[in-house]
Design a protein around this nucleic acid. Sequence first.
DNA 1: TCCTTAAAGCAATTGTGTTTGCGTTATGGA
DNA 2: TCCATAACGCAAACACAATTGCTTTAAGGA
Lengths: 183, 183
Amino acid sequence: MSTNTTPAKRPGGRSAAVLTSVKNAVEELVAERGRERVTIPIVAERAGVNPTSVYRRWGDLQTMINDIATYRLDPNRPLPESGDLRADLTQWAREIVTHYSNPVNAALLRGGAASAGESESDCLRNRRAEANIMVERAGERSPVTVDEVIDHLVAPIVYRVIFLPWTLSEDTATSLVDRLLPE
Amino acid sequence: MSTNTTPAKRPGGRSAAVLTSVKNAVEELVAERGRERVTIPIVAERAGVNPTSVYRRWGDLQTMINDIATYRLDPNRPLPESGDLRADLTQWAREIVTHYSNPVNAALLRGGAASAGESESDCLRNRRAEANIMVERAGERSPVTVDEVIDHLVAPIVYRVIFLPWTLSEDTATSLVDRLLPE
DNA sequence: TCCTTAAAGCAATTGTGTTTGCGTTATGGA
DNA sequence: TCCATAACGCAAACACAATTGCTTTAAGGA
């Protein structure tokens, strides 16, 4: 599981070159044309690589897209840790909004949504893990649960990204946090 | 625009039979296999119809799916109108949860999400219109705006439908309304 | 430096979605 | 009942994605 985007052996050589150029091609093309109109031959051409290589290494384009969508916002980046839950959640939400203001990431999210549900991998599971860390830090007296953070902070942002992308703005994050944590 | 699912002429005859069988086939197949694995030839076979007919009449499968997804929950159904905003929103939200508890509708929503954004048709625009009616009815003194209803009632439900369908339960609607309208 | 082999390239083939021209059916009005 | 025509069925042609066997390249250890 996790990132099969990492070559098993011989990192840094030709394999790595193919890997990064294919990844870049997928990101560019999904943003340009939308998930629906991206195929492996098209990706291969943009990457300057033979389609066969892509088929053999990944086989399933959707899996690759899910993987990219899941790990493009680095799950190991430092989380805000000011000691104030409100401030931390606000900054964290701002990061997410900024991330999805990039059309590439928005398109990848929509691509992920199409194949979500069932038992498939969820490209937002890292968000939940992060929310969990921050709520845990606040301890017993946290005014919110993880589920509430997902429902009232992550969900509205994701909803806007997918269905109403033009409504995402600078203060989307803050106004959502204001609703989540009454002063 | 709107429902091109209605035959232009000669309703009730062979055309209507094709229409309903194709529509049923799309609903069944999207639920069974997910949007990604549904094609026009497959739909045509299930419907007992020639693929050519589907191509000529609809051409674009995604458009048909969006159309079905948009109008499957009748936008002309009566809205709750008890005089109490909280009660109305609760019942309305419950209807939506029930609707999307049906795997067919959940799959259609995911299919719609894939092609949302940009300038395409949004399969949830009727939800916003409904929310608008109920908030308007509450008049000047409404404790919530339409945007807030979308952000904190519709968005969490939709998010769960798409990414965490197993978390939808009987009291999802009521607990969301409780957060939206502090007592 | 040489040698092994994982990984990429190439080309031919197969499978399937889409288009198109034409014949057939049957609806709904005359 | 008959007729005009909208809509469907059929089959061939087409376009392109996916598969497969084989060759070639180059990474990395001996």
